[in-house]
């Protein structure tokens, strides 16, 4: 199924300890350009930690991460010195969307979106504004460009956060439970934006509890439990005939709670 050449994300034997807690237990994964990978699993399975390791918001205890040619490596709880110098390079390869949006409250919608390009990449302001407006139009918020986040709904804030991440032109978009903090009636507008991105061929890694959405947009679904990748496969296979009993157990519980629609 991977017709897009070499993997753009390559994770090898990733481990993460929080104190005495072994949260990630040797994760290896490859993601290919334009692929949409959805990671599911119960709370505390390490999904978010895994995603946050990919842009070094959490420092891995050991293992290797390579994204579009930028590699970092850790052993014995420490990043190698030359890896430490590459943290920012790695972050520039990724865009992240957080559960709590984390939009900048002191900046307007447009200022949020152009902040990265102008400050980090040194893009001329007028160019960044042009691109920023384009992105705001894409997420349906061009009319809110001069509004501060306090006057926006959660769904609007999250769409701004998506536009802000896209503005950096990352190679991979990381979504860490992007709809978990939203009121139910606001989830759809965020998922719609993400579906558009998937259609356009954006490489995405998504941690979510929205199984219907996962089924619809994912090229590959991964079930994670206790810090390990238990099973992966195309959504039809994972959701209809999972091979591992742990996956089917998890999905059964989800279906009970009525979330697999």
């Amino acid at each position: 199924m991977h017709t897009n050449g070499n993997p753009i994300v390559r994770v090898q034997n990733l481990h993460k300890w929080f104190g005495l807690l072994h949260v990630l237990r040797g994760i290896s994964l490859e993601v290919y350009p334009q692929e949409v990978v959805v990671i599911i699993g119960r709370s505390g399975s390490g999904k978010s930690t895994f995603l946050r390791c990919l842009n070094l918001l959490e420092e891995p205890t050991s293992g290797r991460i390579e994204i579009d040619g930028v590699a970092v490596e850790a052993t014995d709880g420490e990043l190698l010195p030359e890896s430490r110098a590459r943290i920012r390079d790695l972050r520039l390869k990724t865009g992240m969307v957080f559960q709590d949006f984390n939009v900048f409250p002191h900046k307007t919608a447009l200022e949020n979106v152009i902040e990265g390009p102008v400050v980090v990449k040194g893009v001329p302001k007028d160019q960044a504004v042009e691109k920023g407006r384009e992105l705001l139009r894409k997420v349906g918020l061009l009319d809110k460009q001069d509004v501060h986040p306090i006057r926006l709904s959660g769904g609007q804030k999250q769409r701004i956060a998506i536009a802000r991440a896209l503005a950096m032109e990352p190679k991979v978009m990381l979504f860490d439970e992007p709809t978990s903090a939203l009121d139910p009636e606001l989830i759809g507008e965020v998922l719609a934006v993400m579906k558009d991105l998937a259609r356009e061929g954006t490489t995405m890694m998504i941690v979510t509890h929205e199984m219907g959405f996962a089924h619809e947009v994912a090229d590959r679904v991964i079930y994670m439990e206790a810090g390990m990748l238990v099973e992966e496969g195309p959504p039809d296979q994972i959701f209809t005939c999972p091979k591992d009993p742990r996956t089917s157990q998890f999905l059964a519980r989800i279906i009970e709670s009525g979330r697999l629609v």
Binding site: L92, F98, N102, G116, A161
Partner: peptide, 8 residues
């Protein structure tokens, strides 16, 4: 975290 994720 948001600022760091932007590569600042």
């Amino acid at each position: 975290e948001a600022a760091a994720a932007l590569g600042m």
